[in-house]
């Protein structure tokens, strides 16, 4: 293949894909077939997907819409949105009892004035800890002090922090140092040499490839990971194996 083209050289499991339309934005892919075609174009074998409506309007509705995109776990794994209300927690608990929940993503309540504090989130965070379900949290929605002090009260909870941007440059090390069970998703992490520095400091085992497609293009961060000069085992960890371990699923198609 020409160097003017790119396709992943290791198995890839994208840890952060949003599907479906927002109310004010049309998705770049319209259905499962188009999503799979985009994944194929970049060499992405599998993706963890959540629905845009669950992120911006209703976790309950979003989780329902998400079901139409799934393929029985062959290439697309569901990520369930959740918020700290009885109805939302009950929906995810029921799905978990049915054996279809492997990862959960936090709906942002801070924009509505409900902070990320134990008094508001204890039921949800305690249940996730007990069930060993990993929780995805979008960093742009959070306050770092609140995030750290709350999560430190749930030491068994595994969290994946999504969307660290250069504007979060000063957050990343306190986060990874303060939360031993925290992982960093890399879709927006672009400080120069930043990923190499994190690998040197924390190891490849704490990092996950995510594109945050369809908010961002799927290929550029994957291309970047292939231009870090990583050992093949480290590249495989970041591109798929860390996520497989978190979700408890078998290896992706190579």
């Amino acid at each position: 293949m020409s160097d003017l083209h790119f396709r992943a050289q290791v198995p890839v499991f994208d840890a952060n894909v949003r599907i479906g339309d927002r109310r004010d934005e049309v998705s770049a892919v319209r259905n499962r077939a188009e999503l799979l075609a985009e994944m194929d174009r970049h060499g992405v074998s599998r993706a963890l997907i959540y629905h845009a409506q669950g992120e911006f309007l209703s976790p309950l509705d979003g989780n329902e819409y998400l079901q139409h995109w799934l393929d029985g776990g062959e290439r697309l794994e569901a990520q369930w949105m959740v918020m700290p209300t009885a109805e939302s927690i009950a929906q995810v608990k029921a799905a978990h009892q049915a054996g279809v929940v492997r990862a959960v993503r936090l709906y942002d309540t801070r924009h509505a004035g409900l902070p990320f504090r134990p008094w508001a989130y204890d039921e949800l965070l305690s249940w996730l800890s007990e069930c060993r379900l990993p929780l995805w949290i979008a960093l742009p929605d959070m306050d770092l002090h609140e995030l750290l002090t709350t999560l430190q009260q749930y030491p068994d909870l595994v969290t994946v922090h999504v969307g660290a941007h250069y504007s979060h440059h000063l957050w990343v090390r306190p986060l990874l140092n303060g939360l031993p069970n925290a992982y960093l998703e890399l879709s927006r992490y672009e400080p120069i040499g930043g990923i190499e520095a994190l690998i040197a400091e924390f190891g490849a085992g704490r990092l996950l490839y995510g594109s945050w497609f369809n908010r961002y293009a799927m290929g550029p961060i994957l291309f970047y990971l292939h231009r870090l000069g990583l050992s093949e085992p480290d590249l495989k960890l970041i591109c798929a194996k860390n996520l497989e371990r978190l979700l408890g699923v078998s290896s992706v198609i190579s």
Binding site: F6, I192, A217, G219, P220, L222, F223, Y224, R227
Partner: peptide
């Protein structure tokens, strides 16, 4: 660069259709 690493920005061009 160096606000952003040039590699993902180059990746936008290389992975574009």
């Amino acid at each position: 660069m160096p606000l952003m690493d040039p590699r993902p920005q180059l990746g936008k061009i290389i992975t574009a259709a």
